[in-house]
């Protein structure tokens, strides 16, 4: 099986513009940044959450806290992932009780990651509200989960993979559609 790149879905400039828009939408819908906090899901949700927080500083002049969540222990398919999925630390230094939390991830697909992330969050306390922000929604949901803030919706087939490549992790900045071919 080979992996071939089919097309580029977003350039660096488009990613940046999209994140700016998402930051505005979150602030608008939350009625300000008071009691708002972002939780980036490891790995690529983390830099995205940090960038959205930076954009919010430009809008409201307020520092929105950013936490990171590793969902490995909460997955329902752990034994299928790898012989051993390596655990990373979660780092949420603020109390989540009564907070207005926005989970941030790169791609929304089956919804299982988000289900796991919510289980992880609720072990930390009882947030007032949890919403979801993703850069790409590619469909194929297996859970009753939807994102409130979506960068772009893209129709995909099951064999296709969307790769979000970010400077902080991948040393390049773009979103590509790749396909598995036999």
């Amino acid at each position: 099986m080979r992996i071939v790149e089919k097309s580029q879905l977003m350039s660096a400039a488009e990613i940046d513009r999209t994140l700016q828009r998402l930051a505005h939408q979150i602030v608008e819908k939350s009625g300000g940044t008071k009691s708002l906090a972002l939780i980036g899901i490891r790995r690529r949700g983390v830099p995205l959450a940090q960038r959205i927080a930076r954009a919010m500083r430009g809008i409201d002049g307020v520092e929105v806290p950013v936490g990171t969540l590793d969902i490995t222990l909460y997955r329902d398919d752990l034994s299928k992932v790898a012989p051993q999925a390596v655990l990373q630390s979660s780092d949420i230094s603020f109390g989540v009780d009564s907070m207005d939390l926005v989970l941030v991830d790169d791609v929304l697909y089956t919804g299982r990651t988000i289900r796991a992330a919510m289980n992880g969050l609720f072990d930390l306390g009882r947030p007032k509200r949890v919403s979801l922000c993703v850069l790409i929604d590619r469909g194929h949901r297996e859970m009753p989960i939807e994102a409130q803030f979506v960068g772009r919706t893209i129709q995909t087939s099951d064999t296709e993979i969307i790769e979000v490549r970010l400077a902080e992790i991948d040393h390049e900045e773009r979103v590509v559609l790749v396909d598995r071919v036999d």
Binding site: L73, Y74, L87, S89, S90, D123, G125
Partner: peptide
């Protein structure tokens, strides 16, 4: 290093996982 995330869980109000 793998013990680190579990050290955090000792500080959670809910310590029980379903892993």
């Amino acid at each position: 290093d793998q013990a680190k995330p579990f050290q955090e869980i000792q500080r959670h109000p809910l310590k029980k996982l379903a892993t």
